[in-house]
């Protein structure tokens, strides 16, 4: 049986370090230095941009500034999300032992199933959407992003458990064209929280996800720690990439490691 390291490592007040750590783990798994990993983490008050996005296009900077919301860019594509402590993130980082190849659609369908089943097990009528989200009654509760590099997979997702949706809606600028396509007027009609739907809190969701993914992926999870190499690499990525304006606010591609 495929054993995963379970990593409960979060830096809620340092979202830039948190995302740098995400990439460091991915690179170390890719290099064969770190084991396959399942990680939980949260951020106290941050917008996380997809790597092809520009902060100015996605974020209401006045709202962000007034509410001390930090702006961070991750190294995967997709759309901007708002994170507070009511939002649970998890990532699955592994060498490709799932026969994914370069089939990104298969990567999403393989990796999203564990979350869908976890939510159903908690009594919600969860369905996975076109590619990278999970909705209940048309409202999004999970958004995911994924990448593949040198036979190494990363799938990470943000789960709305008990997030302040008013803050989310006010800080993210979602273009009318996108909402219209989904048949809604505002972002508030498009998202919801697991707590509201099912009464379950983050502790419940964590347990449900771990149990469900263990079955879905045929893995066991063993509590582990971040390695010294991962820590060092995360600090390096923080300095050369994640803390830099060119990365977060520009559209520069930076590959220091």
């Amino acid at each position: 049986m495929n054993e995963f390291r379970f990593l409960d490592i979060e830096y809620p007040e340092e979202p830039h370090l948190s995302l740098a750590t995400e990439e460091a783990i991915f690179l170390e798994v890719m290099r064969g230095n770190s084991p396959p990993t399942f990680r939980f983490y949260r951020h106290s008050n941050a917008v996380i941009l997809g790597c092809f996005q520009l902060a100015d296009q996605e974020v209401d900077m006045d709202v962000a500034e007034r509410n001390s919301i930090k702006i961070v860019k991750r190294f995967t594509g997709g759309g901007a999300v708002y994170h507070d402590m009511g939002n649970l993130n998890f990532s699955i980082i592994t060498r490709d032992t799932f026969d994914i190849g370069l089939n990104v659609t298969k990567l999403y369908s393989t990796m999203i199933g564990g979350a869908v089943n976890a939510f159903r097990g908690m009594g919600m009528d969860a369905v996975s959407g076109k590619l990278n989200d999970v909705t209940v009654n048309g409202r999004k509760i999970l958004g995911a992003a994924a990448t593949i590099r040198e036979k190494t997979l990363l799938f990470h997702a943000a789960v709305l458990v008990d997030t302040n949706l008013n803050t989310l809606a006010s800080v993210l600028k979602v273009p009318g064209v996108k909402l219209k396509d989904k048949g809604v007027q505002t972002i508030l009609e498009r998202v919801t929280n697991i707590k509201k739907l099912s009464g379950h809190d983050i502790t419940d969701v964590r347990k449900a996800l771990m149990d469900s993914y263990s079955i879905e992926l045929g893995i066991t999870m063993k509590e582990g720690d971040i390695t010294e190499k991962e820590k060092r690499l995360a600090r390096e990525l923080l300095a050369k990439k994640y803390s830099r304006k060119e990365w977060t606010h520009g559209r520069e591609m930076i590959n220091p490691a």
Binding site: G50, C51, F52, Q53, G77, G78, L131, A145, T147, R251
Partner: peptide, 30 residues
């Protein structure tokens, strides 16, 4: 699935600078 935002500078019908941004996925990202 995804918005593609284009910002371009051009002169006499020729692209001088172009920036492609949005919430799509591309592998490899770089």
């Amino acid at each position: 699935k995804g918005l593609i935002k284009i910002t371009a500078d051009f002169e006499q019908q020729e692209i001088k600078e172009i920036s492609i941004t949005g919430d799509f996925f591309m592998i490899p990202e770089e």
